[in-house]
Nucleic acid binder design. Structure first.
Lengths: 141, 141
DNA sequence: CTTATATATGATTATATGTTCATATGTATA
DNA sequence: TATACATATGAACATATAATCATATATAAG
């Protein structure tokens, strides 16, 4: 885990290399060893991109509302559109985005396609977000 | 919880009102009662917007990498910039975004400002996302 | 007060993206 | 095959946003 309680500890024992020639700290300002040690544990760029895509997919009000509806019941596209006041096209486009990140699954039944959350894991992710915003902060909207 | 296992149950006992006059299902195609019942439980638009903002904030590779670094240690802005290969300005801008959603907190120490994850809850949210993408799906990148 | 440095921020620009419109695909039925 | 309808999708457009650049603010030291 991270330590962010009291004072910086190992932080102070670092081999500082304050580059006093650069106007803004271009090379590095502090804690070389710490940086090098943490650098090895960082998420690879590809994974970061991938994870960002997942969150980005959830980062749209329409898709949140779709997720919220599907968290309560499975729905066909037309029901979803009616329920959320969206066009059929917009709904389908958004479902496609959710599908691409494996957030929802679907099953065909005749002409209709029923969508639902992909698994309980997705539900957990969604609820974790809900919890965060329910902590009494950022009372906008 | 949602039921999305076997066949639609209550779904079939609905008072269908298939509008056979509209070319594309504009009013509603199916399951009127279900829709009305679920509609009452839907997340309010403001909250949906708010939650989307939270996810959107996490939906950028740079911010994911910042979160990842802060999940391991607190860092001053300059360290973060060096660690992630970002400009000071870009780093600061992104930290501002993370701050606005209460994902990170900071403390001042002299000229420097140290950032860390806001709380363990944020860590849980981040890890929930990490888990999702680590399930062997979407092996792009 | 002046200088130096760490951080924050406004403006600009290039890129990404959500919706709409039109149309295509898939399925059922006559 | 032809028609109807549920869903999917490509193109276009308007809006959002991340990085850069320039500059402002904040703190420390002289």
């Amino acid at each position: 885990m991270a330590r962010n309680t009291e004072e910086p500890e190992n932080r102070l024992s670092e081999s500082r290399t304050q580059s006093s020639d650069s106007p803004v700290c271009e090379i590095l300002c502090v804690h070389t060893d710490l940086i090098e040690s943490v650098r090895k544990t960082l998420i690879p760029g590809g994974q970061a991109h991938h994870l960002a895509d997942l969150f980005k997919t959830l980062g749209d009000p329409t898709r949140v509302r779709i997720m919220d509806a599907l968290a309560k019941n499975e729905f066909c596209v037309c029901d979803l559109a009616e329920l959320l006041g969206l066009s059929q096209s917009a709904t389908s486009h958004q479902l496609r985005v959710l599908r691409s990140d494996n957030l929802v699954k679907y099953r065909r039944e005749g002409k209709m396609v029923y969508y639902s959350l992909d698994d309980d894991h997705v539900m957990a992710l969604y609820r974790e977000g809900l919890e965060h915003i329910s902590e009494g902060r950022k009372e906008t909207y």
